[in-house]
Design a protein around this nucleic acid. Sequence first.
DNA 1: TCAACCTTGTTATACTATAACATATCCCGT
DNA 2: ACGGGATATGTTATAGTATAACAAGGTTGA
Lengths: 156, 156
Amino acid sequence: MMVISGPFERHDHASCRTRALAQAEEVCGDRLTAVRRRVLEMLLESHVALGAYDVLERLRSEGHRAQPPVAYRALDFLVAQGLAHRIERLNAFIACHRPADCEAPAFLICRACNRVAETGNAPKRGALARDARALGFEIEETVIEAQGLCPTCQTP
Amino acid sequence: MMVISGPFERHDHASCRTRALAQAEEVCGDRLTAVRRRVLEMLLESHVALGAYDVLERLRSEGHRAQPPVAYRALDFLVAQGLAHRIERLNAFIACHRPADCEAPAFLICRACNRVAETGNAPKRGALARDARALGFEIEETVIEAQGLCPTCQTP
DNA sequence: TCAACCTTGTTATACTATAACATATCCCGT
DNA sequence: ACGGGATATGTTATAGTATAACAAGGTTGA
């Protein structure tokens, strides 16, 4: 099954955000505290990945006197819950738009507009898994991040 | 075709290094300057990925009065020539053991011993490529990094 | 009541990376 | 020989990313 979510296709952005927040509440209960919830909202509102210091800045601009660990803790929590993903290439974070169904995500990063799309679960039976098995290497988690140009940015 | 090189299998390490250096000379000619060559050797000697500051420290311990840009420049050069790879998860670098045949590498990173194996070229026809095509996204480069436990570290 | 756990606040610092400018060298065309 | 462009290195300073460590409040349950 192929599932794609992300900024390169038209979709109802507001409802998509609402749904993701509702799912987050469900998953976390009252562990989704004010700061964590606010950070998740920020990520959901932004199609470009946000760095920890971007998040920090936004918190501060809202009156929150926050230090770096505040942003990192909130982001780490969201990632641990599967509500957000870290994009290694960018040292930045995006919200997961379908936390329920997201075991091994892959990402398409546009180097021109910086938007990031999350694509369907990565293969458990691909060449990598086969190679790992042959070596006796036990894979726990795989980072897959493709860089290139999104449809919009291909025609300057 | 599946090709695997790396620290999780027995191999003739010395000759493997010699061969890689010879290939580097071939590719670069006299652009493989002393520092660049030395840094490549360091990477070839180490099966764990080296951070830029690890490299810097080694250069300094050899009497070279180097500043951070020296390490970064050498590493950037090696990566640009396909002689080394950057491991995003680790903010660190490893030598490529087969620069000639290395278009879309993937990596297996052991979280216990920190060694990194490079596996055969990643698929151009996998699920990711298919998804990207469906979206009209043009992939230029893909990072694939799996973390887990190597055979040795699975039995504590 | 107290102890364990989780969350947040706060300070300080560690680690990673690059901008910007100076100097030197080599190759090449004239 | 000269000048000019491209490449490589030296050096200073600073930007950007991340975490250690300790303090303090809140909730829960024994």
